[in-house]
Amino acid sequence: MAENRHEKLGLTDDQVLEMYRIMLTARKVDERMWLLNRAGKIPFVISCQGQEAAQVGAAFALDRDKDYVLPYYRDMGVVIAFGMTVKELMLSGFAKAEDPNSGSRQMPGHFGQKKNRIVTGSSPVTTQVPHAVGIALAGKMEKKDFVSLVTFGEGSSNQGDFHEGANFAGVHKLPVIFMVENNKYAISIPVERQLACEKVSDRAIGYGMPGYTVDGNDPLEVFEVVKQAAERGRNGEGPTLIEAVSYRLTAHSSDDDDRTYREKEEVDEARKKDSIITFGNYLRSLDILTEDIEKQMNEEITDLVNEATDYAENAPYADPESALKYVYEE
């Protein structure tokens, strides 16, 4: 039997089970979207696979009733934890009018939902970083005690907006959590061709904030460090840079072929550390994820994905002329 690590972090058995459920839900929605793409039913998929633990671990460390998240395109785990439903994700996948992220104006993975404080994002990477700083600045001005969590890939940590945003937050001691989901690849470019420093977290010192590198396949490790970062932020101690290291298990997107730039053996090796397996095993070994619970959970998620797929597939497209709406306030 494994050592119980979550109790020390203040997490109940129900909470860790819920973490696993959301990780598994994200994985199953993602897998379904690939099937739908390969069946010619949806034009595009961009995946969360391999990063669910970091995403859900981080989201659970926040106050999901008041904190803000600025996710990037792989963050299905973050947005589900913050309240986006499977049906809503499928509506986005099928580009249907009801998609709450964008009313089917944007590709899947471009999340946004104001009621859940999921801030709208775009395709040019890293632009959301200064936005997270601006939201934290607004919170400080308004004397609120929320924090903002902004996530991005290790490739994005080379963009000017990362450095400008981190420096701004450092100078003004703003409650921002910068979380790099280091999945080892920026499309085809491996991390060693991306970074001259050993770790992304090494960059923190330049911006006057602590930097941590944690195992992104372990939701509890991510939870712990994000929780501390959120407390620092709420206490007025400023921002934190966190690097959660995992692996991108799929190609960059449905339009990419990763066999052209990495070995199958490397991917197979990474799959052994897949958090869906390892965190599942942790919960099984503690008898939290019992056979009955697992069976029921799988059935419930599969039903949810099936229902969402049917609903989204049959939902209406936007009226063509609605393309003219909302350029400015109406």
């Binding site: 970083v129 200064p130 934290a136 000017g160 400008e164 420096n167």
Partner: peptide, 19 residues
């Protein structure tokens, strides 16, 4: 700080919040 993209980007974030 002297960084125009941050001046605009931080302002945009604050505006989205409601400032």
């Amino acid at each position: 700080p002297l960084a125009e993209s941050a001046i605009a980007g931080v302002g945009i974030g604050a505006a989205m919040y409601g400032m």
